[in-house]
Design a protein around this nucleic acid. Sequence first.
DNA 1: CTGAAAGCGCTTACAG
DNA 2: CTGAAAGCGCTTACAG
Lengths: 344, 344
Amino acid sequence: MTDVIRRRPRQADVAALAGVSQATVSTALGTSPARASLSAGTLERVALAARTLGYVPDPVARRLAAQSTDLLGVYTFTDAFPVEVRDSYYPFLVGIERSAARLGYDLLLFTGTSSSRGGEAVQKVRLADGCLFLGRHVPEEQLQQLLDAGYPVVYVGRRTELGGRLSYVGADYVAGAAQVVDHLAGLGHTALLYVRGTDDAVASADREEGFWRAVAAAGLRGQVQRAYASSIDARALQSWRASGVTAVVTEENDANDLLAALLAAARDADVAVPQDMSLAVLGECGGLEPAPRVTGFALPRQQMGEDAAALLVDLVTGRRTGTVQELLVPSLLVGETTGPPPPA
Amino acid sequence: MTDVIRRRPRQADVAALAGVSQATVSTALGTSPARASLSAGTLERVALAARTLGYVPDPVARRLAAQSTDLLGVYTFTDAFPVEVRDSYYPFLVGIERSAARLGYDLLLFTGTSSSRGGEAVQKVRLADGCLFLGRHVPEEQLQQLLDAGYPVVYVGRRTELGGRLSYVGADYVAGAAQVVDHLAGLGHTALLYVRGTDDAVASADREEGFWRAVAAAGLRGQVQRAYASSIDARALQSWRASGVTAVVTEENDANDLLAALLAAARDADVAVPQDMSLAVLGECGGLEPAPRVTGFALPRQQMGEDAAALLVDLVTGRRTGTVQELLVPSLLVGETTGPPPPA
DNA sequence: CTGAAAGCGCTTACAG
DNA sequence: CTGAAAGCGCTTACAG
């Protein structure tokens, strides 16, 4: 009697036991159309042999031969699991996992180290059938290579790099900004000031555009001011009031320092929020201590994750092709910092 | 002139351009010892050719040939990213990612669906070089197959199944229980009651053992009572007091309903905690609304994740072999529910 | 110092 | 209806 096979069984082992060829095992166990033309007996014997031996296909070999692994890559440019919750990818991951599970894919999570090993590392994502990218960073050259090779890539978050050829599922900041402005208009405000940061990020421009559109649509007076957090003080606030401004809208930024500066200035100037002046942020007021419930809008993070993964699967399977860009509408968060304007 | 090569370049293309064989390209571009014996000129020409063509190795092919993926599997028996934070694997994942990143591994996350597809699905983990398992469920047959094949497996959490052959990094409940008892002894308590649930989970037995050991070591009087949450009421509490018990210790369980019942009973019986009686839990008091700061102990979850991943890597690389079991000591959490015993 | 060859475990035309 | 063969793009002894 021969030794028990210790190594994991391969198709050849199953074939030997079932009395068929290795290729037949492959078709019998696979899902290709050729499977239909195998006899019931063969199918049965192969299935039995496979079960007996505990055969499991080697996904790597399968991928090499068939060019598919049923794996979705997830590439983040910082730790996927940051300890600080503030800008955690967690809600995105929840959505991504849901979609992946539903569609029968597993997740290949590239860790910080491999990511930071320089540009080449990005190519590792090819182990998966397609890859999701999270984070602000866009390694254009590397992505260009992937796109050129027809490799499916989807960003979570709107990206305008690479001549707009990147697929993404992002948040509609224009719509989010409009919701906030409409909320203020509904309360009776007519003169709004928008304070944005001094950089030119895409999201910033989008928010400003949303501000202007909604202001125009609602027939309000609006003005925009670029500011550093350090330049916002009690005097500035008072001069805005004097000029008739009843609501100040600001941009969400990294540490929300613009928002923090506005709150501090209101305190210093003895301006009651929202009785004397309303305050809103185009985004979420996270990261502040203590956390005031500031009016703003929330990104549908989990839904973005779900949609991004679903889109990636469509791209992988060829159900959709080319560049697909999708924007999800944020939801208005009415906090304690907005109310009717003071009586004139 | 021939057509431009549109498909991504492979080693054969680089070889042609550099005027060497494909195998030489492999060694020149790789890290094997054989590389040292290539001439400087060859190395240079290959490097140049690779750069010119934009060659990037195919990770899949490399894996198939080299029998290693630099991937660590993570298998959970529920969603890896549950929406309810209570029994979230998040802290474990943070630790796992850290270790993996530091050691140069990426993570292969098996999603709920693939996991629930029945026993066979577990075998999919073989795509990774080794696999971490999270969750109470232990699919013995499947794991047996993996172990028999010499496949490295590490559980996060102590597991006694499979005749103790499972490697794990768990929490030392015995030590945790002892910490709580010692804390009470230090406060002056001499008569303790331990209320545990009616099931026989390993963790429950460990906690009870820790209770008894610490009670004995501190020279206290102790008693253990098994109870359903529904059987704990004001009368029970009062009879315990009458018998001289000054501190009640309970087990952490799924919904912490034992703890909740004790808190409710104290309220009903008009027993002030901790003035009249101290209360502690062998674990964390999560899941209760409102959340009282109950004395207990916290598992070092992130550290468990880190250690588990590091252990798995050791098993994968052969630095350690066989079954390795490691227990991490929890840290005492002193809450508002314990104090000195009432004057006698 | 380098090349020819085998092989990793599959899939997929193709021949019969 | 099934098998023989080629090939996916690499790594790794081994021969020279």
